[in-house]
């Protein structure tokens, strides 16, 4: 997967090297590669934005792609990153194909993109290919959901934020927080 700088990379090469392509037969892979395009973006570039129509299904060939969303008061928050070999832009496969988050280049990236229209066309024409692509997307999504769940648990978070409403000794616990100087008391009503 490592690309020497300057070397020209074709969609067919790129696809062969990633999991999505490795799972396909040679003829099918060729067919898919034919609609692919290599995109190179500099660090910081936005590939597409939340709310837009998703322009393509992407596979990271090198570099790191970030998925972020804007939270008022917190600014842009990166929710996850996509590393070399993994896909992004899966919403292209599911109408209405609207991007759920903004995708940006965390580092310089090389991406293999399958533009929405032509991708839909080859998939419609070849049910086997479609099945393989959907399966791949599903398993990538599955992994992402598992990770997201773990992230949601906020496992490394402050124990105080994950406390049940009235855990054992909670009352005296909070009291002790005051001694620690950790309590920032806001008026309560």
């Amino acid at each position: 997967m490592e690309q020497e700088s300057g070397e020209v990379i074709t969609p067919a090469h790129a696809l062969q090297a990633v999991r999505l392509g490795a799972g396909l037969g040679e003829a099918t892979r060729e067919k898919l590669a034919r609609v692919g395009q290599i995109l190179v973006r500099g660090a910081g570039a936005v590939l597409f934005r939340e709310g837009e129509k998703t322009p393509y299904l992407g596979v990271v060939i090198s570099g790191r792609v970030g998925i972020r969303t804007y939270v008022a008061g917190r600014g842009d928050v990166t929710l996850s990153t996509v590393e070399a070999g993994d896909i992004f832009g899966w919403s292209v496969l599911v109408p209405p194909s609207r991007a759920h988050a903004t995708v940006w280049a965390v580092t310089d990236v090389t991406v293999l993109g399958f533009p929405a229209e032509s991708l839909r066309r080859v998939l419609a024409a070849d049910p086997d290919l479609a099945a393989a692509v959907y399966q791949h997307a599903l398993s990538a999504l599955g992994r992402r959901i598992t990770s997201t769940r773990l992230q949601m648990l906020d496992l490394f978070g402050s124990p105080r934020t994950t406390e049940p409403v009235r855990p054992p000794g909670a009352l005296s616990r909070r009291l002790a927080d005051v001694r620690r100087g950790a309590a920032t008391e806001e008026p309560t009503s």
Partner: peptide, 16 residues
């Protein structure tokens, strides 16, 4: 105990 715990910074040794 509540006052003593506050004075030295321990969790009050009062259990439920």
């Amino acid at each position: 105990e509540l006052l003593s715990a506050l004075a030295v910074g321990r969790r009050p040794q009062i259990r439920e």
